[in-house]
């Protein structure tokens, strides 16, 4: 016998080589699928972002960084902040969407956790249903609510914000409404998992020490909800930056986000190289966001 070659793994007498080979057979199909249809296409995206659009919308294999300088606003007509503004606006919208969703999710979760246990399922289901409802339907539903014949638009007209008989869309306001409605369940669901298990003894202790509501929240409640909150923020901020359906239906040309810009390049403009460059910019923003979140999330966990 020689233990250099044999080992017992979960009760099975085998060799490391045999185990790795079997693990590879099992993992390879799925891994290769992702590699082939996501990792490699992403690399292609990088390559294509450095090519040039042909006259008929085809890819010309002429390499340059023109697409990126164009994204930065430089063109033969001089400098314009349009694209940068779209990028900035996407981050801005994602930030406020996330913040409002977090602010609304806390009372929502507290309220549900405060119901009798057998009733919580019902309340939780009320969050899960919109979560699983198709995004296109939900965005379109807001078009109906903001229609000119309905009270919201009429009220706005009375206030003189919009002319009488016109809808509240397309507008930044409509985009924000749609975004918050879309992502509120994404924050509430993971947050609820933490709120339900909250240790209220800490809150009682804080009360005994005559802490005010703000201090109680900050020192006794918030630290306990960091894990769920962290998941919720990731699930909201990153997809919100790349969101395409909501601004498309509710913002139109008036409030374009980076998702719409990408879609436009792959759709009507038929400018794949520039679309690829914009996609990469969004990917970079995502990675930066994830990185900030991870480092900040680490601090929160310690606190």
């Amino acid at each position: 016998m020689s233990s250099q070659h044999h080992l017992v793994w979960n009760g099975e007498l085998t060799t490391r080589l045999r185990l790795i080979r079997r693990g590879m057979y099992l993992a390879a199909p799925g891994m290769l699928w992702i590699l082939l249809f996501l990792a490699l296409p992403s690399v292609l995206l990088i390559v294509v972002s450095m090519t040039t659009r042909g006259d008929y919308g085809q890819i010309e294999w002429v390499f340059s960084l023109d697409n990126f300088t164009r994204l930065m606003g430089y063109s033969s007509y001089g400098w314009s902040a349009d694209y940068l503004w779209i990028l900035f606006r996407s981050v801005w919208v994602a930030f406020w969407t996330t913040l409002v969703c977090v602010l609304l999710a806390y009372p929502l979760c507290f309220h549900i956790a405060n119901r009798a246990p057998e009733k919580r399922y019902f309340w939780l289901t009320l969050i899960i249903i919109p979560f699983w409802t198709n995004l296109v339907i939900r965005a379109y539903a807001w078009l109906l609510v903001l229609a000119p014949q309905l009270p919201l638009a009429k009220f706005a007209a009375v206030l003189g914000i919009i002319p009488d008989g016109s809808p509240l869309y397309p507008s930044a306001f409509a985009v924000y409404l749609g975004m918050v409605a879309t992502f509120l369940p994404f924050v509430a669901m993971p947050l609820y998992a933490n709120v339900e298990k909250l240790d209220w003894a800490l809150v009682e202790a804080a009360k005994d020490l005559y802490a005010g509501p703000a201090r109680i929240f900050w020192h006794a409640i918030w630290p306990q909800t960091v894990p769920g909150l962290s998941v919720g923020i990731t699930l909201t901020f990153i997809p919100a930056m790349g969101m395409f359906v909501v601004p498309d239906l509710l913002g139109g040309a008036k409030y374009m986000l980076v998702g719409n810009l990408i879609q436009q390049q792959f759709g009507t403009s038929r400018d794949w190289p520039f679309g690829a460059a914009v996609s990469l910019a969004l990917m970079v923003l995502t990675l930066v966001g994830l990185h900030i979140h991870r480092t900040k999330g680490g601090e929160g966990g310690v606190a």
Partner: peptide
């Protein structure tokens, strides 16, 4: 990391990459 790629990649970037591929 490879396994998590589809989860962290923004949908629209993934879609664009697929369209190109």
């Amino acid at each position: 990391i490879n396994l998590h790629l589809p989860v962290v990649t923004p949908e629209i970037v993934f879609a664009a990459a697929l369209a190109v591929a």
